[in-house]
Simulated assay, not measured.
Amino acid sequence: MRIEGNLRIGNTGARGVNRNTGSGPAFHVDEGNAAPRPTAASAGALPAAGIDALLTLQSAEDPALKRKKQVRRATALLDTLEEVKADLLVGRISEGRLYQLMALIGQARERGEPQLDALLDDIELRARVELAKRGLYPRP
């Protein structure tokens, strides 16, 4: 079955078919004897690799920004350690400061640097001991 009109947008790929050149659209049914005509190949979808590349770029962190975050965390951790040291020298240390220290240690962990992780483990152990002296046992 084929519907033809007076106005054509593009070539349909059919050859040697009777076409109506009148003013109105023509309609006629092809006979079942005719061999099926091959259809034009459709354009494939764009590969998803472009989207994957964009997602990878978005998830990749800028080295300069990553370094700034590390320096900011390290500075906050060192400042808190100084405050804990001063509190220990005076003989009073607040639970809030110890919890703050525990939170900063959790943020500062960078897997892949065994020496830094060992140092953070030692600091965390000391903070847990100080909390345990007060009867507080934070979750690991």
Rank of each mutant, 00 (worst) to 15 (best):
49 A>C: 07
37 R>S: 05
42 S>M: 10
66 K>M: 02
7 L>C: 04
24 G>S: 10
5 G>P: 02
11 N>E: 09
81 L>G: 02
44 G>A: 11
9 I>C: 07
76 A>H: 05
41 A>L: 14
72 R>E: 03
6 N>G: 01
56 T>C: 07
18 N>R: 15
51 I>L: 08
71 V>H: 08
56 T>V: 10
45 A>R: 12
23 S>G: 13
47 P>H: 13
39 T>F: 14
44 G>V: 05
4 E>L: 09
24 G>Q: 15
76 A>S: 06
18 N>V: 14
43 A>D: 00
28 H>A: 10
27 F>R: 03
5 G>L: 11
60 A>Q: 06
43 A>K: 04
48 A>Q: 13
55 L>P: 01
72 R>L: 08
26 A>P: 00
24 G>N: 11
18 N>C: 13
22 G>M: 11
52 D>Y: 11
17 V>L: 15
26 A>G: 02
68 K>L: 15
75 T>F: 01
55 L>M: 14
56 T>L: 14
43 A>S: 02
78 L>A: 01
64 A>R: 12
19 R>V: 09
80 T>N: 12
53 A>W: 03
67 R>Q: 11
45 A>D: 11
30 D>Q: 03
22 G>R: 04
50 G>S: 07
5 G>T: 05
73 R>K: 01
14 A>S: 10
37 R>Q: 11
42 S>Y: 05
68 K>C: 03
24 G>T: 13
7 L>V: 09
37 R>K: 08
61 E>F: 02
72 R>M: 06
58 Q>M: 11
